[in-house]
Amino acid sequence: KFGRVHERAEGPAKILAIGTATPFHWVDQSSYPDYYFRVTNSDHLVDLKEKFRRICNRTMISKRHMFLTEEILQKNPNLCSHNEPSFDVRQDILVSEIPKLGKEAVLMAIDEWAQPKSKITHLVFCTRSGVDMPGADYQLIKLLGLSPSVQRVMMYQQGCFAGGTMLRLAKDLAENNKGARVLVVCAESSAIGFRGPSEDHPDNLIAQALFGDGAAALIIGSDPKMGLERPIFEIVTTAQTFVPNGDCHLALHLREMGLTFHCTKDVPPTIAKNVESCLIKAFEPLGISDWNSIFWILHPGGNAIVDQVESTLGLEPNKLQATRNILREYGNLSSACVLFILDEIRKKSGREGLKTSGDGLDLGVLLSFGPGLTIETVVLR
C-alpha cells in the first residue's frame, strides 16, 4: 500500500561536471621552513628547523595554497603556538571561509554543467574544518541561492578518505532518486591544524609540511539529458573497508589547540600492503587483474605512500603521474585531493585527444585512504 515514493533511475550514476578552487595566497615549499619557523617564533630550535627542512624536501611538493597569511597569523598569535588554546579563533575563521571556498568550486562546476542551478536536488558536503550547526551545507545553500528544499547531508571530521566516500553516497542518491542531481562538495583548510613546532611531537612537522587548502565540487546524476549534459565518468562500483587496528597508525583529534595529527612510519607500507586486496575485490568480477590496464586516481597521502603503492603493485611510472602532479602543485588537500586528481586526469586526456576521459582507457580506480586506515575503492568508467 505504501510502496516506494521515489522512482529509481534507469542507469548508473555519472559525473557530469567538476570544479575546483583554492585560496589566492600560496607558499613556496622550498622556502617554507624559514617562513614557518619565523612566523611561529621558533628560529631558536635550530636542529628541529633543519629536520623540518629535510621533511619538506622529501615531500616532492612545490607549492601549497593556504588561507592563513602572515597578517592573519600576526593578529592571532595563539595559532602560532604549539599548545595555546586557539580553537575559537580557528572556528571564527573557518565557519565562514569553508563555505565560501566551496562556493567557488561549485560555481566552476555549474559553469561546466551549463544547467540551471535550480535542477540541483541534493547536496553532500564534506570538511574536517569549521564544525558548526547549522553547518557548512546550510551556509553554502544560502551563498548559492539554492532552494531550501535541496536535500542535504553534512559530513564533518572524515579525513583524507572522504573523497571516495562522497562518490559512494552520491551514487546511491542519484541511482535511487530518478532525476536527482547531486552536488558533491569537499572543502578543506590546513588552518584547522596549523600550529608551531615542538621537539616532543615530530608528527606535527609532517602535517605542517604536507597539507594545503582547496575545494572540489562535482555534479552527479543518472540518465543524463542527451544534448544537454556531457558525462565525464561513470561510477561503476564503490566499497569501503578499514585495516584492523589501523587507528594506531593514523589518527587526528580535535583539541583546544586545533586538530592534532598522529602518524607513524608504518602508514605507507601498511596501505601499500592492503591496497591489492581492495583492487581484487573490485575488479575480479570485471575480469581485470592487470593493474597497468586501468587508469589511476590515488590519494597522495605523501610521497612515500605513492612510491610504495607503485612499487608493491608493479605500476608503470606514468600510472600515478596525475597523483604526483597534484601533490606537487597543491600538497595533500585531504578529502578534496582525489577529486582534484580526477579533474587533472580528464583534462590531460582532453588535451592529448585521447579516446576516453581516463587516459584513453575504459576502466579505472579511485583509491582514497585516511584516519583509521580507512580505504575507499571506486571503480570508474
Rank of each mutant, 00 (worst) to 15 (best):
R4W: 10
H6G: 10
R8V: 12
E10Q: 03
G11I: 01
G11V: 01
P12W: 03
P12K: 09
P12A: 10
P12Y: 11
K14C: 10
I15G: 03
I15D: 02
L16P: 01
L16N: 07
A17N: 08
A17S: 05
A17R: 03
A21T: 06
A21Q: 05
P23R: 04
H25L: 11
H25W: 12
H25K: 07
W26Y: 03
V27W: 02
D28K: 06
Q29H: 07
Q29C: 09
S31T: 09
S31R: 08
Y32P: 00
D34A: 05
D34G: 09
Y35A: 05
F37E: 12
F37A: 14
F37H: 15
T40S: 06
T40Y: 04
N41P: 13
N41R: 07
N41S: 04
N41W: 06
D43P: 01
L45D: 01
L45R: 06
E50D: 14
K51H: 01
K51W: 04
K51D: 08
F52T: 01
F52G: 04
R53C: 01
R54A: 13
R54S: 08
R54G: 06
R54E: 13
C56W: 14
N57D: 12
I61D: 10
S62V: 11
M66S: 08
F67G: 10
F67R: 13
F67C: 11
L68A: 06
L68G: 06
T69D: 05
E70L: 00
E70K: 02
E71N: 07
I72G: 09
L73K: 09
Q74L: 11
K75I: 02
K75G: 10
N76E: 10
N76H: 09
N76D: 02
N78M: 01
N78R: 11
H82G: 11
N83D: 11
N83K: 09
N83L: 08
P85V: 13
F87R: 13
F87M: 13
V89P: 12
V89A: 12
V89L: 07
R90A: 02
R90M: 08
Q91A: 05
I93P: 09
V95S: 13
E97S: 10
P99T: 11
P99S: 14
K100R: 06
L101F: 01
L101K: 02
G102A: 15
A105P: 02
A105C: 03
A105H: 01
V106F: 02
V106I: 03
M108Y: 08
M108K: 15
M108N: 11
I110P: 02
D111V: 03
D111S: 12
D111R: 12
E112V: 03
P116H: 06
I120E: 01
T121M: 09
T121L: 05
H122Y: 04
L123Q: 01
V124L: 13
F125Y: 09
F125E: 02
G130Y: 06
G130V: 07
D132R: 09
M133E: 12
P134Q: 12
P134C: 01
G135C: 08
G135T: 10
G135R: 06
A136L: 14
D137K: 12
D137W: 02
D137Q: 08
Y138H: 11
Y138M: 12
L140T: 00
I141E: 05
I141N: 00
K142T: 14
K142D: 04
L143C: 08
L146A: 03
L146M: 00
S147I: 02
L228F: 01
P231S: 14
I232F: 07
I232T: 03
I232D: 03
F233H: 06
I235T: 13
V236A: 06
V236S: 03
T237A: 05
T237Q: 03
T238W: 05
T238G: 12
A239L: 04
T241P: 10
F242I: 15
F242M: 13
N245M: 15
H249R: 11
L250I: 04
A251H: 13
L252D: 15
L254D: 15
E256V: 05
E256L: 05
M257A: 14
G258C: 09
L259Y: 09
L259K: 15
T260Q: 15
T260F: 03
C263D: 15
T264F: 07
K265M: 06
P268A: 11
P268G: 14
P269E: 13
T270E: 09
I271N: 03
I271G: 02
K273E: 08
N274Y: 12
V275F: 12
C278T: 00
I280T: 08
I280L: 11
K281P: 04
K281M: 07
A282I: 00
A282C: 09
P285S: 08
G287E: 07
I288V: 01
I288K: 10
S289M: 06
W291A: 09
N292V: 03
N292H: 02
I294N: 12
W296D: 10
I297P: 11
H299N: 11
H299I: 00
P300R: 07
P300K: 11
P300G: 03
V306M: 13
D307G: 05
Q308R: 03
V309P: 03
V309L: 11
S311A: 13
T312Y: 07
L313A: 08
L313G: 05
E316F: 15
P317F: 05
P317L: 03
N318E: 05
N318G: 10
K319D: 14
L320A: 03
L320K: 01
Q321K: 13
T323Y: 00
T323Q: 01
R324H: 00
R324Y: 05
R324D: 03
N325I: 11
N325T: 04
I326D: 00
I326W: 05
L327E: 09
Y330R: 03
G331R: 12
N332T: 14
N332V: 10
S334P: 09
S334D: 11
S334T: 08
S335C: 03
S335Y: 00
C337P: 10
C337H: 15
V338A: 09
L339F: 13
F340P: 14
F340I: 07
I341C: 12
L342Y: 08
L342R: 06
D343F: 01
I345P: 06
I345N: 04
S349A: 05
S349C: 03
S349P: 04
E352D: 08
E352T: 12
E352L: 15
L354D: 15
L354M: 14
K355I: 04
D359L: 11
D359G: 05
G360R: 05
G360Q: 13
L361V: 08
L361M: 13
L361F: 07
V365D: 14
L366R: 08
L367D: 15
L367G: 15
L367C: 14
S368L: 01
F369M: 15
G370T: 12
L373F: 05
T374S: 13
T374D: 12
I375D: 09
I375G: 13
E376P: 14
T377M: 02
V378K: 15
V378G: 15
V379I: 08
V379M: 13
L380G: 15
L380P: 15
R381C: 01
